[in-house]
Design a protein around this nucleic acid. Structure first.
Length: 242
DNA sequence: GTTCTAGAAC
DNA sequence: GTTCTAGAAC
């Protein structure tokens, strides 16, 4: 087995002309950010938004969320750029959901407290956790929305502004505190049910999602029957029910 | 981050 | 006997 491609994201983030990247890698880019497909998707839709170097900082400054947070002003700027591109990606994902599935569901944005690849990357992913590459407890717990290993973008932004003390603590994000979370027992992020194995969890998540899809599609039909226009407000309504 | 696989768990 | 996890990767 080849060594892990720890620096793959850094290479993408430092490329001078993103358009030269293969379409299997590149989702989109701006002067400041580059959005790529996560090669091993843990949800049905899973993208990564990277701050470009040198536009938003040196490779060292952008190595991780931890190094980024050492400089408050830079962190604020980089997070804002990631948020903006993340929002663009979210909209595109939700359009694709409607095309492909006939309805759209939540898309969340956040970071891992302890990253395993070089270069800070914002995950933009649909909230189903039904991706092909979701294979073990570590994967699942790292993306569980409330366990603590997953850091929502808006939380990180709020902490940064809250007070200097919190910002100092954040720039450490100690492994010792976060890594044990990955070994905790498996529980459904929707209904809290405990599952003993990964296959059982996956079956359960699929059932929850199938049921949700059925409700959403039924709602869509009802709206249509009432003569209401579909599309625009579907995403908002779906989100409010999450 | 993944793949592979020994042996634990059932 | 089969499923599943979890640690090694020279």
């Amino acid at each position: 087995m080849a060594p892990p491609p720890l620096a793959a994201l850094r290479q993408y983030a430092s490329v001078a002309s993103p358009a030269s990247l293969p379409p299997t890698v590149l989702f989109g880019h701006t002067d400041k950010t580059l959005t790529v497909y996560d090669k091993y998707n843990k949800s049905l839709f899973h993208l990564l938004v990277l701050p470009r170097s040198p536009a938003l900082g040196s490779e060292a400054e952008l190595e991780s969320l931890q190094t980024l947070l050492k400089t408050k002003d830079r962190a604020r700027d980089v997070l804002a750029a990631l948020a903006e591109s993340g929002e663009t990606a979210r909209k595109q994902i939700q359009e694709e959901m409607t095309e492909r599935y006939g309805w759209s569901w939540g898309v969340r944005m956040g970071f891992h407290a302890v990253p395993s690849m070089l270069h800070v990357h914002l995950h933009v992913m649909s909230d189903d956790l039904l991706g092909e590459a979701m294979k073990n407890k570590k994967h699942y717990n790292s993306f569980h929305p409330t366990k603590g290993f997953w850091l929502p973008l808006e939380d990180v932004q709020a902490w940064l502004e809250a007070d200097d003390e919190y910002y100092k603590r954040m720039s450490k994000l100690p492994k010792a505190q976060y890594e044990p979370l990955l070994k905790e027992s498996l529980s459904c992020f929707r209904c809290d049910k405990e599952l003993k194995t990964i296959p059982a969890l996956k079956t359960h998540l699929q059932e929850e999602w199938d049921a949700k899809e059925k409700r959403e599609l039924a709602k869509g039909k009802k709206r249509k029957a009432q003569g209401a226009p579909d599309g625009e407000d579907d995403a908002k309504k779906a989100k409010a029910e999450e």
